[in-house]
């Protein structure tokens, strides 16, 4: 293979791949953020009334389903079942919804593990000193949970980016699909798909590096000084 032509070909792929990558990052970002919010909501619901009753059971069923079945199956269901009922949904919206719903289940578990990592004794001491439950959550639990779950959240973000390749199956113009389009045109599957693979690798490596850098920043600013606690507390 002529080296110069390879480089030329790679340059030709670039715009298509970049457009695809943009879609990949869009879908992933929405999935991660919406998944976090939904996951937190699910966790809150699951703690209602001490974890007993219908609502917590529903949350457990949700988490079990979305973590235990393949994302591809979930995506196909969310795409084809509405059309059976006559509702035509745009593929991009379905992709974002499915990935968010999926990620929410994982992030719910991550948050739950993070919350339970804060020793009961610390919460007990705070309540014994008359600190209100809302303040206990804000000043005792939240700071520690945030630091504890960060690595797992970064890991989940990387998984979401990788999983997003699946949405190409329902015709979303992401990075994987851009690859298929190029291959359909120039019949060079090996070099195109390897390029696509390396692009994903670049994305996941970047997210990992960013995550690690933020983790180090969080570690350095560990100390919540008396000033911060006091300054924000006076308003109560």
């Amino acid at each position: 293979m002529n080296a110069a032509t390879l480089a030329e070909r790679l340059c030709a792929y670039l715009p298509v791949l970049l457009a695809g990558a943009a879609h990949t990052l869009l879908v992933s970002a929405v999935a991660i953020v919406a998944g976090f919010v939904l996951g937190a909501v699910l966790l809150g619901l699951s703690q209602a009334r001490g974890g007993r009753g219908l609502l917590p059971a529903l949350v457990r069923a949700y988490v079990s389903f979305f973590r235990g079945t393949p994302l591809l199956a979930q995506l196909l269901m969310m795409f084809y079942l509405p059309s059976a009922a006559g509702v035509e949904l745009p593929p991009l919206a379905v992709a974002m919804a499915a990935m968010a719903a999926n990620s929410a289940a994982f992030q719910c578990e991550i948050l739950r593990a993070g919350l339970s990592a804060v020793p009961d004794g610390q919460i007990e001491a705070a309540l014994a000193f008359g600190i209100a439950p809302r303040q206990v959550f804000r000043y005792v639990q939240l700071p520690q949970v945030a630091r504890a779950v960060w690595p797992a959240v970064v890991s989940e973000a990387i998984d979401v980016i990788k999983n997003s390749a699946i949405v190409s199956v329902i015709a979303v113009a992401d990075l994987a699909r851009s690859g298929r389009q190029i291959v359909a045109a120039n019949f060079r599957p090996l070099e195109v798909y390897v390029t696509v693979g390396l692009s994903y690798l670049l994305m996941t490596a970047a997210v990992f590096a960013a995550g690690t850098w933020i983790a180090r920043r969080m570690g350095k600013g560990r100390a919540i000084s008396a000033r911060v606690v006091n300054r924000t507390a006076i308003r109560t």
Binding site: Q122, A125, A126, V140, P143, R147, R222, I224, A226
Partner: peptide
């Protein structure tokens, strides 16, 4: 049961 993410003073 000290809160590990706060300084002694906090």
């Amino acid at each position: 049961n000290l809160w590990p993410h706060m300084t002694v003073l906090a």
